[in-house]
Design a protein around this nucleic acid. Structure first.
Length: 887
RNA sequence: GGGCGCGUAGCUCAGCGGGAGAGCACCACCUUGACACGGUGGGGGUCACAGGUUCAAUCCCUGUCGCGCCCA
């Protein structure tokens, strides 16, 4: 019965991954349980955009999170990995708008309600892509708890937060310059603006003095099209060239308006001509200058980036011809007109930073509008303090600097967006513009009635909130807040937030501000910041470069375990990871190695024995592998506790391949019939599967189930291995190390002397201490097999002529190979060895000759150095003797 | 311009005050009782450069150069 059920010769991930995942999910293995006595362990997923599909960045972050969650779950913690998706305002609205465009319509034609119905319909049909793909990766999220930032509960949390912050004066309306995205026709926050270097021009324009039209003030600008809205020219107060002009006026060319020359230190005498036009409604710096000098602030561009003359007066036919013209066309026409009029002194090529919308890619336009703002400066105080006093720690810690730098200079957060898809701002306006912020229309109407003394018709604010406003609430809104649920009490604050540095400001900082304000406690204890996934040459992945890797394709080719292991192995602290298919392929070899080791154990009839007690092991072989296994567990714990995924992976890799396969199984082969060896092998393999499960869940679960360690799909819940004491571990290690070194020395000599492996030759020990002889005697079979020895014995008489030799501690290994080896080559080999030992001896001797070293270095260091010198000298002596014997 | 990080074997990266490491790649040999997605052995590095601190520096400090990222 068992024989037809043996493990397949090769591991086929595609056959088992879906089955195992379904098995875990259906059995509730991912479920947190607030009623359990165990301590909770919480990770909040950074909610991927509902429009998203799994990319390598997701594969990285979710592999790390799943590894941590599975590890803590096995450790007995009540693990909650909270799943969900983000409504992603602009991204989702764009997706649906594109669909509509394909149907020959657009959102305004549909109207707001119909459009939103359409978005929800899209979400129902296509919004589950990313969550399906997360399952392919093996992510053990608690799916029944899945949330969406626009679901009813989270929307309620958003309204509650908005209303509360408004009442506290921390949310307010203000008319000021915002970053206006002309493509989306919406305000965006400072964070959504990225500056791009643009090769443009600096136009030097003559502004005639009002009281002396023969004199000009030359003004340099990169944006001639906004000059219709100039309301001053600024010069530096200490700029001697212009002192006499301060307080006088210039006539704004084309427009004909007289505007003052003001002194303001914003003007940089080194830049351009030192005289700068001031357009308060279209430039952030100019806005400040305008405020300082109480200047008018006419807007001359509209929400689509076209010229509007509504706020300026002019008789110029040319200027009137610009009405409704796009900003870049207006620039061309104005420059041409100035040139015609002889007012353009020169054009200087000029490279400068131009703000662009990060999603739209178009230059943003500072625009004077009324928007909703959040007083981030006030909320930031508690968040800064929580990092200063260590309630939240960043890993790697250097990211705290980045966090502090931004938080200490944080600007008001513009939270309103002129979009339709999102949380509509819970504010209503009376006929006179009075604002009523309330949880719902009913409450707003009551407030209005109280205010006006009668019922009035209210209109609701058209705008929605910045998507990040709702994600800022994620750590508590997903747990039921504002209701006081058992989940909220138990799983807040979370243990660790795992994410990339690119959203420290967008998301991490804002969660901390909101969490501290509304929950009175940090949302998470640790913030683990990982790098970016790049291609194997270190290039950022991008569609235009064509170097984008698809994690699903890698999973199809190599299996989820190989991809996950590659990610962990390459994730060092504070580094980007360079990943290519060849890396994943090479870690697939590791998966295969594990599979084959398990097959070998199965073929030898190893069987799990729950009563096995490592403390009762008697053999050096079993004691050593058990001690190594315990050490591997300790290493894995230390690595994972420090978020050193690379070290965790390396410890697993080393222990599995090097320690377990290369030495333990090889040495155990003939002994696998012995009960203790067999039981130990079974025990250690079981430990290994548990140790590897967090990073390689599929293959380990399959082996665990198949080999009978537990019921189907039970490894995910198996207890994480504990470290344990092994009696006589040191002696066992010493003995096995000696065997390993003996075999290694013999192999090296044979390989270098080109002795064919098929030829077995005696291994003799000269000058060996009795305990070495005894050790060898206990390992005759292994030495024979692994060192290709036909015999192993102490050397009684003289070293036979034509032998190869090698030094092992006090003894010399002698391989009588007369006629089979080239003595000239053997002499050269020994001389090289001697030179190496001699160099070591000289280096160490020089150190000990230094009186300062002996006097000042730590005594144990000096002692260790003396021992090193002694053994190096002994080795030189033995190699000398070996050389002398060759003659 | 300000800040952060990185320069260690061909590649990717650990290490970080006292003997230069791993994986992959490479070369040679090997189908030895799971595994050629394998086994065994081997070659390969003035630890970017220059100063300083120290008995001792790849490691700490300062500077220079090169690369990357963030902010203005």
């Amino acid at each position: 019965m068992k024989s037809i059920d043996m493990l397949e010769k090769t591991f086929s991930p595609q056959d088992i991954e879906a089955r195992l995942y379904a098995g875990w999910e259906e059995s509730g293995a991912f479920a947190a349980d607030p009623t359990r006595a165990a301590a909770p362990f919480t990770i909040m997923i950074p909610p991927p955009n509902v429009t998203g599909s799994l990319h390598m960045g997701h594969a990285l972050t979710f592999t790390l999170q799943d590894t941590l969650i599975r590890w803590q779950r096995m450790r007995g913690r009540d693990a909650l990995w909270q799943p969900g998706t983000d409504h992603a305002g602009i991204a989702t609205q764009m997706v649906v708008e594109r669909l509509l465009a394909g149907e020959g319509t657009e959102r305004r034609a549909l109207g707001r309600e119909t459009f939103l119905d359409r978005v929800w319909q899209w979400k129902a049909e296509s919004g589950g892509t990313i969550t399906r793909q997360l399952r392919r990766l093996g992510a053990s999220l608690d799916w029944p708890r899945e949330r969406f930032t626009m679901d009813d509960g989270l929307s309620r949390a958003v309204r509650e937060v908005f209303v509360t912050l408004h009442r506290q004066g921390l949310i307010y309306r203000d008319r000021r310059l915002v970053n206006w995205d002309p493509k989306f026709q919406s305000a965006i926050s400072d964070l959504e603006v990225e500056s791009r270097e643009i090769k443009g021009s600096l136009w030097h324009i003559r502004y005639p003095l009002a009281d002396d039209p023969t004199r000009f003030l030359v003004v340099a600008t990169t944006r001639p099209e906004t000059r219709l809205g100039d309301t001053a020219v600024a010069v530096h107060p200490e700029d001697a060239r212009y002192t006499d002009l301060i307080g006088r006026s210039v006539v704004l060319p084309l427009v004909g308006r007289a505007i003052p020359i003001v002194a303001d230190s914003y003007s940089d005498p080194e830049k351009g001509t030192g005289a700068v036009k001031i357009t308060p409604a279209h430039d952030f710096n100019d806005f400040e200058v305008g405020r300082r000098h109480d200047l008018p602030m006419p807007s001359v561009l509209d929400r689509e980036g076209r010229v509007t003359l509504a706020e300026i007066a002019t008789d110029s036919a040319f200027v009137h011809s610009l009405q409704g013209v796009d900003r870049f066309e207006a620039r061309r026409r104005i420059v041409a007109e100035l040139e015609t009029l002889g007012l353009l002194e020169r054009i200087e090529p000029h490279t400068h930073q131009v703000p662009h919308g990060d999603r739209s890619g178009v230059p943003i336009e500072p625009l004077l509008t009324v928007q909703w703002y959040c007083n981030a400066g006030e909320l930031a105080k508690a968040a800064i303090a929580s990092v200063e006093d260590g309630r939240t720690k960043f890993v790697p810690q250097q990211w705290e600097n980045t966090f502090f730098a931004w938080m200490r200079d944080i600007q008001p957060w513009c939270i309103s967006r002129q979009l339709w898809w999102g949380h509509r701002i819970p504010a209503w306006y009376g006929p006179d513009g009075e604002v009523f912020v309330a949880h719902d229309a009913n409450e707003a109407e009551q407030a209005a009635e109280k205010h006006y003394g009668k019922q009035v018709a209210l209109t609701r604010d058209e705008d929605v909130l910045d998507t990040w406003f709702s994600s800022a609430l994620w750590p508590f809104s997903t747990l039921g807040w504002p209701q006081q649920t058992p989940e909220l009490a138990r799983y807040y604050p979370g243990d660790v937030l795992v994410t990339g540095f690119d959203i420290i400001f967008f998301w991490v900082a804002r969660m901390m501000m909101m969490g501290l304000h509304f929950m009175g406690e940090v949302p998470f204890r640790h913030v683990y910041i990982h790098g970016l996934v790049r291609d194997e040459r270190g290039q950022k992945m991008s569609k235009s470069k064509g170097n984008v890797m698809d994690p699903l394709e890698l999973i199809d080719r190599f299996g989820a375990d190989a991809l996950r292991f590659a990610i962990c192995a390459l994730t060092g602290p504070g580094r980007d990871i360079k990943l290519g298919p060849s890396r994943v392929e090479s870690y697939r070899s590791f998966v295969t190695k594990l599979w084959n080791a398990a097959r070998f154990c199965e073929m030898n009839g190893i069987a799990p024995d729950p009563d096995f007690d490592p403390a009762r092991a008697t053999l050096p072989l079993t004691r050593r592998i058990l001690a190594e296994a315990s050490a591997a567990v300790a290493q894995a714990n230390a690595a994972l506790e420090a978020y050193r995924f690379d070290e965790y992976a390396a410890a697993c890799y080393r222990f599995t391949w090097n320690t377990f396969c290369d030495w333990f199984l090889e040495l155990a082969k003939p002994a696998l019939q012995e009960a203790e060896v067999k039981r130990t092998a079974a025990h250690v393999l079981g430990l290994l599967l548990r140790l590897l499960h967090p990073v390689m869940p599929f293959v380990t679960e399959e082996l665990w189930d198949h080999l009978g360690y537990g019921a189907p799909c039970s490894l995910i819940r198996a207890p994480w291995p504990a470290t344990f004491e092994v009696p006589g571990a040191d002696a066992a290690r010493a003995e096995l190390d000696w065997v390993v070194r003996l075999v290694g020395e013999v192999r090296t000599v044979r390989a270098e002397m080109n002795v064919p492996p098929s030829l077995r030759a005696p291994v003799l020990l000269k000058d060996a201490a009795p305990e070495s002889i005894a050790r060898g005697g206990r390992w005759l079979e292994a030495i024979g097999r692994l060192a290709r020895a036909s015999d192993f014995a102490p050397l009684a008489g003289e070293v036979p002529a034509g032998s190869a030799q090698a030094v092992l501690d006090e003894a010399t290994i002698v391989l009588p190979l007369a006629g089979l080896i080239d003595l000239v080559a053997e002499r050269a080999r020994l001389e090289k060895e001697r030179a190496k030992a001699q160099k070591e001896a000289e280096q160490v001797a020089r150190k000990l000759d230094n009186a300062d070293f002996v006097a000042r270095a730590a005594p144990e260091v000096v002692e260790e150095t003396r021992e090193r010198l002694e053994s190096a000298r002994a080795e030189v002596a033995r190699l000398e003797a070996a050389l002398a014997r060759i003659g």
